[in-house]
Design a protein around this nucleic acid. Structure first.
Lengths: 205, 205, 205, 205
DNA sequence: AAATAATCGAGACGGTACGTCTGGTCTTACC
DNA sequence: GGTAAGACCAGACGTACCGTCTCGATTATTT
């Protein structure tokens, strides 16, 4: 009787891509809160059921669509100075968040406050990969003798990027150079090995 | 001739208070995304029109209700050490945000990403007063010779509180003592006047 | 300026007239079902309370407004032939009902189906006066020897005007000459004294 | 190949019947002007959208509900005398209109004054079928030699039923035997071939 | 090549809430 | 001290989407 049937999940990859593309377009045009499953279905020429079959919520769909487009960006350079690499990456991030992507990131985080699945997806798919890359830069800095070996990379990243996200989410300017360099002074000096860190800081400011 | 006519808005104060109370109760019980104008009207025993008359959006109503309840909290102590006052206030904030209020703050910020009026209200009614208090503490620190006189208070506050909000909004633990003390080390040492700041830091960690 | 004291009720009459005028204008423009008390109050520059004070319902207000304008119309001629007077009056009525007044009469009767006060007002203020005039014409016909003395004027009027209102209310043409003359043939012949009634009709048709 | 595709409307017949039944019940209980779409939806256990999907207006819904219940009534007998059949049918009609159905008919016609769709539906679904039956009776009368062959059936029906509806709509008694027999005397005599009514007319015309 | 079965588009369905409109009552401030 | 202006509670309006549920019509293996 119970001859094991092969699981014939034949999901149509093309369909999923059409859905994600439609979702991202609508996300750009109208923002997350005017994104509706019905709208995506209509735009993608797809039945609502198909969307519900593959995504658990509107937020999950939006995050997926966002990731498909935005993920391959914002990498770190690898120059001689890890410290300088981090400084530059922070500025690239600020530049990107100053535009359309920033609006979508704001809305992703905003909507994630109301749906833990969305939050988890956004964390795992977006924030964590970025933190991993930052950790690698920090590790390089340690190995190159720039940073203290006992730093806690999670806390450093929180201290460095937290204020950027905070300003993004509270409507403050994200590309304020004075803000960015002050921030770097506190954090990067805080993790610097050189005794001159304090001195240099006082000199710079 | 043209004697200024008094504003003809004769809003009923009692009614508004009933509405705000009902809103806050529902906010606590069900969260912001299940807060509906109809629900508030029903709970408050009030016509929907009355709510729409005085608040431009659901978010604005929620912020007002939140402010009416939560505002008079989270003050700073005033001991001999401004630095210590700040440390303690950060911990009190973390403790409060670890509970119900934290959930509401997350949702306020979350919803503010979709409505600029809500964001403005939350900023002006909640965040700015808190920042003003923090600025006063910083100022006291300067006057007492604890902090550098040339610090930019806005940036210091961003650097100090930004990571807290970032962790709150990305689901990380808000009361992680290691995180908090590391953060303070970076920022408070960064603004400390004493040359020993760096030394003390290295000793502590 | 001119401090005109007292004159206690003087304002009332003027106010009522303003209200009735505003009502009739709105009745013409938008029809009965889009007539609202609020609209009338706004148009007349009057408080809603004032309207509610003097009229029990929207229908009653509409009927009053209608009567104030339309009443002094549609009189009977008094020629040698009562029969001919009636024939002519029916045609005048049909002509008037073919236009704007007809639309309002339709809507008055329509709304009267839902409010007995409106129906009573319309009956007493509009239909009965008209029936009284018709009865006078019938009476003259009896006295002149044109009509049978034992006719029941109410029933004659029902038979003569009923079909006109019926067609008005069911959307049929009200000025169909064949319809009108057939109708008159049945009714006026039915009440005619002379055997020659038939003759006269055949000559005419 | 290109065989006409069937209409993709997959309406659920059972749902529609539930809606019509609920509508009629509410119509009976509260009358047309207190009939609300929301009320019908609640009573029928149906979404409002479903009602709006299939009926353009409250009036159209009410007419449909009325037709579903009332249509199969008020037929004509077929005895030897067409004249007598008509007389009896008029009395049956008057009897039915004297009760609950009469109230609904009044309200249908009343509401039809404000919505041409409702008027058209009521005409086509209710009045015209009844007129068709009456025309058949007249035709039988002609063929049996009771009525003049040149009568215009539309006008005869207007003359016969118009006053009944007129009295119904103006609040007069609908079962007044004197009224009914007077009316029949005028109209049926007017179309009779037999010499009693007006001998000379039949000869000449 | 035919039979089989998951997947698809379409959209009807019972619902919830929206933001608006109006009803009828009650309140306030001016004249 | 009467009235305009309008706030108030109530509740229906017609619309937008929700998430579930059929429908046939593709397709893509499996037989």
């Amino acid at each position: 009787m119970s001859i094991e049937k092969a699981a014939p999940r034949r999901r149509n990859q093309a369909t999923l891509e059409v859905i994600l593309a439609a979702t991202y377009e609508l996300l750009q045009q109208n923002g997350f809160d005017r994104l509706t499953i019905e709208g995506v279905a209509a735009r993608a020429g797809v039945g609502k059921t198909t969307i519900y079959r593959w995504w658990p919520s509107r937020g999950a769909l939006a995050v997926d669509a966002f990731l498909a487009v935005v993920s391959p960006q914002l990498s770190f350079n690898e120059t001689a100075s890890a410290s300088e690499d981090i400084r530059q990456q922070v500025r690239r991030l600020a530049a990107v968040y100053d535009g359309e992507v920033g609006k979508i990131v704001r809305e992703m985080i905003g909507s994630a406050q109301f749906d833990s699945t969305t939050l988890a997806l956004f964390n795992e798919g977006y924030l964590q990969p970025r933190r991993t890359a930052a950790k690698a830069a920090l590790q390089r800095g340690i190995e190159q003798g720039e940073f203290r070996a006992d730093l806690n990379p999670e806390h450093v990243i929180d201290a460095l990027y937290g204020p950027v996200y905070y300003r993004l989410l509270t409507g403050a300017s994200i590309r304020d150079e004075a803000f960015l360099s002050t921030l770097e002074a506190y954090v990067l000096d805080g993790i610097s090995l050189k005794g001159t860190a304090c001195d240099q800081r006082s000199l710079r400011e």
